[in-house]
């Protein structure tokens, strides 16, 4: 009998570990599926007062499109606001500052309760960087994005295509899975993408990370049916 018990004990130890792993894996999978499913539908039953908003800026045309979108959003609803651009990109934050200053002029500075913040993030890959070194820089960018996301914990994320939005959106998605913060992620594909999505867009679409995915050309909507066609922003 003793021999039998001992034998069983040695068998059940790895069995327990395996069972635990299977259960953990199942729970995480179910949670991820739930988060993706829950993300695609409205979150609030009664209209919220205001939502903290993270705006991810990219160079050139991306920023111009984002500024166009921001100019029609009700700023008192999307507040406080945080802008993030790549470390190497000073132009975009400058444009955001100009926009924010024009808002202060309109509403009067005393109405701004929490000041708008401007931040910069390491880029996962500079143009022309080798793929070998970009493994390291991607990890660095991911760590930096997670750190920034811990600090910001936005309720709304607006992004439109620069590569910098990937580590930030992935971090935000992980926070949703873990239950730290639920962010609604809105992605607007750039107007420059007529027939194919950008790599950032494709990743967010395929992985189901974005809550709402918008495209500016009808051809793209046909190809990616979960996307919403919104016409040209520019």
């Amino acid at each position: 009998m003793d021999w039998g018990n001992g034998y069983c004990f040695f068998l059940t130890l790895p069995n327990l570990t395996i069972s635990f792993l299977i259960i953990a894996f199942t729970v995480i999978t179910i949670r991820i599926v739930y988060v993706i499913h829950r993300s695609s539908r409205p979150l609030y039953t009664s209209p919220p007062q205001s939502l903290s908003t993270l705006i991810i800026l990219g160079s050139g045309g991306h920023t111009a499109e984002m500024i166009n979108l921001l100019s029609v959003l009700q700023k008192d609803k999307f507040t406080p606001r945080v802008y993030i651009a790549a470390w190497t990109d000073n132009m975009s934050l400058q444009k955001a500052r100009v926009l924010e200053e024009s808002l202060v002029d309109q509403t009067g500075a005393q109405k701004v309760k929490v000041p708008t913040q401007f931040m910069q993030i390491y880029r996962s890959r500079e143009v022309g960087q080798s793929y070998l070194t970009s493994v390291g820089t991607t990890l660095l960018a991911m760590a930096h994005a997670t750190w920034l996301m811990i600090k910001i914990r936005p309720q709304v994320i607006l992004c439109n295509g620069p590569g910098t939005c990937i580590p930030l959106c992935v971090a935000a998605f992980l926070f949703k899975v873990v239950g730290i913060r639920w962010s609604s992620i809105f992605y607007v594909e750039s107007i420059a993408r007529v027939r194919r999505l950008s790599l950032s867009g494709l990743l967010l679409y395929k992985l189901g990370i974005s809550d709402q995915f918008y495209v500016q050309w009808p051809q793209l909507q046909k190809k990616y049916p979960r996307a919403h066609y919104v016409g040209c922003l520019m």
Binding site: P42, P47, S71, V72, G231, C232
Partner: peptide
């Protein structure tokens, strides 16, 4: 000229804003 209002409308609707 382009118009950002359609996308703003969808974002507002999703978040429950008027």
């Amino acid at each position: 000229p382009g118009d950002a209002r359609p996308v703003a409308k969808l974002i507002n609707r999703f978040l429950g804003f008027p």
